[in-house]
Amino acid sequence: MFPILNIGPLALQTSGLLILAGIWLGITISEKSLPKITRLISASNLYNLVFLSLLAGLIGGRFIFVLLHPEAFRGNWISAFIPNTQMFDVSGGLIIALIAALVYSQQKHLPFWATLDSLTPMLAVISIFIGLANLASGNAYGTPTNLPWGIELWGATRHPTQIYHILSAMVILWLIIPGKTIHPYPSGIRFLIFLSCTSFILLLIDTFHGEGALILDRFRQVQLFALVILGISVHQIFKRKNAVSGEAQNAST
């Protein structure tokens, strides 16, 4: 565990730095992979889409926080503009970031599925860095175990769930990263395979997480959510494959 990086008087949170590094490396890999994934999106569109969404997410997360907790700012509205990570609504920020991405894609007429495909290598890299960030901060820790590969964390020998996450995310990256040749996949398949693999892995790893909410006092919320996402992504893969094979049949007749 290495939660803080002290540089002189500055104490930087390693997890935040790792996420930033993941975004930077991810977008670089997405850009390099772009010619092998789709020719419908330019590198500049890809960069603009990511940075606009990030910016909108950051501002939106703060805006939603202020809307949800107006009493905290009564008589002190200036503090709504203080740069600080504490006053941030994560789900609100994500929704605003998604809306900004959709609006930008619509304005630039970016094809929906091809855009998601082009972002997939970046998402896969970020997933690895989320695991590294959790390992550095000690978050997403595992349940106690007697297994020989258990790690000492928070006063017990625990499942190294962060390492499970990193290794499986690396395998997923290897699966979805484009090879030397361009394969005629229907657009969206790369993203949907990433989504289904990630949901499946999350569903397995969450079994060993030491924290998390329950549904009906029995079922892990994350596992059920991952199962729903897995079902939706598998259904979409069949739909995309059938749509493309139908188009091919029509073209040949």
């Binding site: 349940t143 289904s196 499946f200 569903l203 397995l204 079994t207 997480h209 030491g210 924290e211 998390g212 329950l214 029995r218 079922f219 892990r220 596992q223 059920l224 991952a226 199962l227 897995l230 079902g231 598998v234």
Partner: peptide, 19 residues
């Protein structure tokens, strides 16, 4: 994978310790 996931959730929710 979907059958395995459903079985996995069902079994582990009852057999393994919950958070």
């Amino acid at each position: 994978s979907i059958i395995f996931s459903i079985l996995w959730i069902g079994l582990t929710s009852f057999l393994l310790p919950l958070p």
